[in-house]
Simulated assay, not measured.
Amino acid sequence: MNPKTGTRYACGVVVLSAGLPDEENFWTEIDAAARTGRYAQALLFFSQDQFPADIIRNRMAHHADGLAYAACSTAGEIGGSTEGTGQCLAVLFPKDQFSISTVRIDGIRSIGFDRIVAQVKDARQVFDADAANHTTEAEQGDSFAICLIDGLSVVEEMITAALHWALDDIPLLGGSAGDSMHFNKTSLILNGDISDDCAIVLFCRTAVPFRIFKTDNFVPTERKLVVTRSDPEQRIIYEFNAAEAAGEYARAVGIDPGSLSPMSFASHPLVVRVGGEYYCRSVQKVNPDGSLSFFCAIDDGIVLTVAEPTGMTRSTNEAFEGVANEIGPVDFVLGFDCVLRRIDAQNRQATQRIQKIYEKYNVVGFNTYGEQYLSMHLNQTFTGIAFAQQAAIAGEKV
């Protein structure tokens, strides 16, 4: 492997990355890895501005025919050997350590809760039956599920709840696909079939010790906004406190309405209290009529509280240290990080500090339009799965 494009970790997972100058090396390494027949599944995260979905599909068909893969477009990529966003990342899971199967749920805007549950339960039965017929170490391990969802579908809450119900005791995490903050159309690919309006679920079993975790860094203030007019199906709020939404939000956070931007929303998130805990309901954008579009579910009568992010570096480091204390040295982390956390880190000049934490724990993943964790669809949160270093084989550059 080319040292500029790839890293192999102790569990045998290989991560490849490329920006446009390294693109040929990247596909050469994908080709070489696929030819070994060692890998059960690949996950690809890509900037569709630089790597359109049809290019990904055509390149995979040419260089990795026969390698199962799931892919999604992002709002930014995390990890790899290329600096910044605008990359394509590939995470290759070895057959001797991971048993993986996939199912794609199409038409998620209209399919309904019960049909999703039935489809995922059927897929899980096949996954469990396959494991029962094998005796490899991977098939006798513990299970988790990863979901990749169209981040513009506006139904992630329903999808996540249905998946959680169908998966029962299998923990779920994942991320909503993005499109580099254009808010136009995302792309998801399963084995060469490109779509949006869908969710891809990966059933995974491994003997490698792992932990699923999340972290956020916002604290509620005393400032309240009551939703008095909204369109829940489109996640649009027209009025807070019987006044124009954008203007009322701007007043509550002390910003001129004309200067509202993604940085404003990242620095002044809105949260809702559910069962004694606060969950973020992040603003996506201001619309021309002064309404606000959201990344998460909203409805009339909901009381939203203005929150202030605090101590992102500290809270992120504590979360990763806590996982390492549980499972020992961390091999790598598959992570789903809200794009608004990245923007807030940039706004507070904390990007390098967060990046150092991610580099220390070998985080690979993408910036999302929303995060999934167990039964919840979240915003302004990092969700991840940390894998332990099993043996004395430290993460090796290859």
Rank of each mutant, 00 (worst) to 15 (best):
G6L: 11
Y9I: 01
A10K: 06
V15F: 06
L20Y: 03
P21G: 06
D22F: 14
E23R: 12
T28D: 13
A33T: 03
G37K: 08
L43C: 08
L44R: 00
D49M: 10
A53E: 02
I55Y: 13
I56S: 07
R59K: 15
R59N: 11
A61F: 14
H63W: 03
L67S: 03
A68N: 12
A71W: 00
I78R: 05
G80N: 07
G86W: 00
L89P: 00
V91I: 14
F93E: 07
Q97F: 04
T102Q: 13
I105C: 04
D106Q: 13
G107S: 11
R109G: 07
R109H: 10
S110G: 12
R115G: 00
R115F: 01
A123P: 03
R124M: 04
V126Q: 00
F127T: 03
T135G: 14
T136A: 01
E139G: 06
G141Y: 02
S143G: 09
S153V: 07
S153E: 10
A161T: 11
A162L: 02
L163G: 05
L163N: 01
W165M: 15
L167I: 01
I170C: 01
L172H: 07
G174T: 06
G175E: 08
H182P: 08
F183H: 11
S187R: 01
G192E: 06
D193Y: 10
S195M: 13
I200K: 05
A207Q: 09
P209E: 05
F210T: 01
F210H: 05
V219G: 02
R223L: 15
R223Y: 15
R223H: 15
L225P: 01
V227K: 00
T228N: 07
D231M: 11
E233M: 10
I236Q: 09
A242W: 12
A242R: 15
A246Y: 00
E248V: 10
Y249L: 08
R251P: 07
R251H: 13
P262V: 02
F265T: 02
F265S: 02
A266K: 03
V272H: 11
R273N: 12
E277F: 08
V283Y: 06
V286E: 04
D289A: 08
D300I: 09
L304A: 09
T305R: 06
G311S: 14
G311Y: 12
A319Q: 00
F320L: 04
G322E: 13
A324W: 04
E326D: 14
I327M: 10
I327F: 10
P329H: 12
V333Q: 05
G335R: 09
G335T: 12
F336V: 05
D337C: 07
C338M: 06
V339T: 09
R341L: 00
Q349L: 10
A350V: 14
R353I: 08
R353T: 06
I354A: 03
I357F: 09
E371I: 06
H377E: 05
L378P: 03
Q380D: 08
F387T: 01
A388L: 10
A391S: 15
A391Q: 14
A394Q: 14
